[in-house]
Design a protein around this nucleic acid. Sequence first.
DNA 1: GCAATGAACATAGTGTGCTATATAACATAT
DNA 2: ATATGTTATATAGCACACTATGTTCATTGC
Lengths: 152, 152
Amino acid sequence: MTDKDSKLYNIDRTSSAGYMTNWAARLFARAMDRRLKPLGLSTGHLPIFFALGAGGALSQKALTEYAAIEQPTMAATLSRMERDGLIHREPDANDRRSMLISLTPLALEKLPAVREAIETLNEKALGALSEEERDAFLVSLAKIVAALADDD
Amino acid sequence: MTDKDSKLYNIDRTSSAGYMTNWAARLFARAMDRRLKPLGLSTGHLPIFFALGAGGALSQKALTEYAAIEQPTMAATLSRMERDGLIHREPDANDRRSMLISLTPLALEKLPAVREAIETLNEKALGALSEEERDAFLVSLAKIVAALADDD
DNA sequence: GCAATGAACATAGTGTGCTATATAACATAT
DNA sequence: ATATGTTATATAGCACACTATGTTCATTGC
């Protein structure tokens, strides 16, 4: 196979939106985890912090839908967070199947540092993008999420 | 805390590039894995297919750099692929520490279906984006990758 | 030539995601 | 009221990412 054939026949990974999105996401996660580690946190905690940061309580089911992950993934993350003293689980009086989840004071204390980490990392990542490019990037991501959200 | 205070104080996750990139990447991976599963493949194989799809052989080290993952991650992925008959490992005559990796005929056979899966999924994900938006999206991703690539 | 340094790969342990499946409680319909 | 189906959570097993560390071979300096 010649170089020319190869070029025609192969896909360039840098022009595949899926490949590049995965690559950027891995770099984001790596960098974020390094910033969160000194706080005793990690990236998987972030959706729960977003959802419960105002101080309320939600069921595991509600958190699962909010975070847009599968139920067993949420269950495992909550187990680790409970183990580490970050969340509190209490039975729902209205439904004995359900548990209400809330952040502990320990977790709430960390919120400002979490916001700081998110903002500085986004700033670093988007440093080479203009305001217009940043807006367009977020709009495109939202469209992609919407297009892929209905299962498969 | 009032709604207004909450808005001021909290970050909206949909305006965090890192959060949205992670979200889109998870949806891409889920959908791609479902398409690759009938082929006996998964997303972790893709960088190796991109790198070795032309039929050559590379060291684990070279593949690790190409895929931009950590060395133990590549080692584990290659072990699974060898177990599943997708790659061949042979000792490098010039450096006894090093192994040369190549795709097996079984893996090479699957290449057209892999390309097809990548193209159709990208098409589905980008369906709501114009040509200009698609180009801009890839350019922004490349800038973000470059900004985050130098470690932390 | 030998010691020290570095490079390539392997292994151990953990987190976060997935699918498939089990269990217990709620809801409904006869 | 009981059987049937649905919903909320739990568990098992795997893939793929990370960090930390060990082993073996290559290289470099003396």
